[in-house]
């Protein structure tokens, strides 16, 4: 009897916890949706801001976000996938792999505002002559540092999941290491790597702290990577902090969330592909 009651209690508790999660999610999403949907329209997304953001759209912020994410990926994807490939295909476990992996994990633990401070010091103050100071390039590179550990980790797991036996078969037919990586390891790892990249895009597009020192509120379309620009997150921060327009702030927030939710949906598709790939083991 007792155990039956305990069972039931446990069930209720678990059920309530699950309910809380769903409620929190729905209220956050719902709140942003209700407050933001009024602002959103095609012209909101594609027009320039007017009258200090009180009217018009948020086009420059969208362009700016795209640019910083592109810069971050252009830096972190090759470096991250390359590091992962080095770890899995070119080194046996040892001191070197441990050092690389520990560094990557440590990098992942750095608070995002500290990345911001680091980016400010390195790209704006120290390398300012080359990066254009507080530019989209500086912001993108800082985000690139931040997403590097995720890309390394996910790519490494993806490559390790390609069965050792497949590599042996390939070598057994006289394939070189590079041929084996190109024809067997990379194709097998692509869904996993892509998942990691998309997760990283989501993270980069949603972060404010690392770039808050480099991206100010700017109503113009960025002219180049070396110029200053605007992103969705920083714009959201300034619009609400300075009480400029809550309506536009919520519109921006909703736009941001839609982008991230879409990215998450895409990752899910890739994950499915990934699990379909796994049947070969």
């Amino acid at each position: 009897m007792l155990s039956k009651n305990a069972d039931r209690l446990a069930k209720i508790w678990l059920w309530l916890s699950a309910l809380v999660i769903i409620l929190v999610l729905l209220s956050v999403l719902g709140y942003v949706f209700i407050n933001g949907i009024g602002a959103i329209s095609v012209s909101f997304l594609l027009d320039m801001p007017q009258n200090n953001w009180r009217e018009g759209g948020i086009y420059p912020a969208i362009v700016g976000s795209l640019i910083v994410v592109f810069v971050a990926l252009a830096f972190a994807a090759p470096v991250g996938v390359g590091t992962a490939m080095y770890l899995t295909e070119f080194r046996t476990e040892g001191l070197v792999t441990r050092i690389i992996r520990t560094s990557s994990d440590a990098l992942n633990a750095v608070p995002s505002i500290v990345f911001g401070l680091f980016g400010l010091s390195l790209f704006v103050f120290y390398l300012g002559d080359y990066t254009g100071g507080p530019s989209l390039l500086s912001a993108g590179l800082t985000l690139g540092f931040m997403i590097l550990p995720t890309i390394i980790r996910t790519s490494e797991v993806a490559m390790r999941n390609v069965p050792y036996a497949e590599r042996m078969e390939s070598f057994g037919m006289g394939a070189s290491k590079l041929q084996t990586i190109r024809n067997i390891v990379l194709p097998g790892a692509v869904p996993g790597i892509a998942t990691g990249l998309i997760l990283s895009i989501g993270r980069a597009v949603g972060e404010t702290a690392p770039i808050i020192f480099m991206v100010a509120l700017n109503p113009t379309i960025p002219k180049s990577l070396f110029g200053s620009g605007n992103t969705l997150t920083t714009q959201l921060y300034y619009l609400s902090m300075e009480g400029i327009s809550m309506k536009v702030a919520f519109g921006t927030a909703l736009t941001l969330m839609l982008v991230i939710l879409t990215l998450n949906a895409i990752t899910r598709v890739f994950k499915k592909r990934l699990s379909r790939n796994l049947r070969r083991c």
């Binding site: 069965p163 036996a165 497949e166 042996m168 078969e169 390939s170 070598f171 057994g172 037919m173 006289g174 394939a175 070189s176 067997i184 194709p187 097998g188 790939n277 070969r280």
Partner: peptide, 21 residues
Amino acid sequence: DVVALRKRVGMVFQRPNPFPM
């Protein structure tokens, strides 16, 4: 040349490992 050698001497393993293609 190990590549040329493995071309001449092929190997079939204990468990079949077709490539996922």
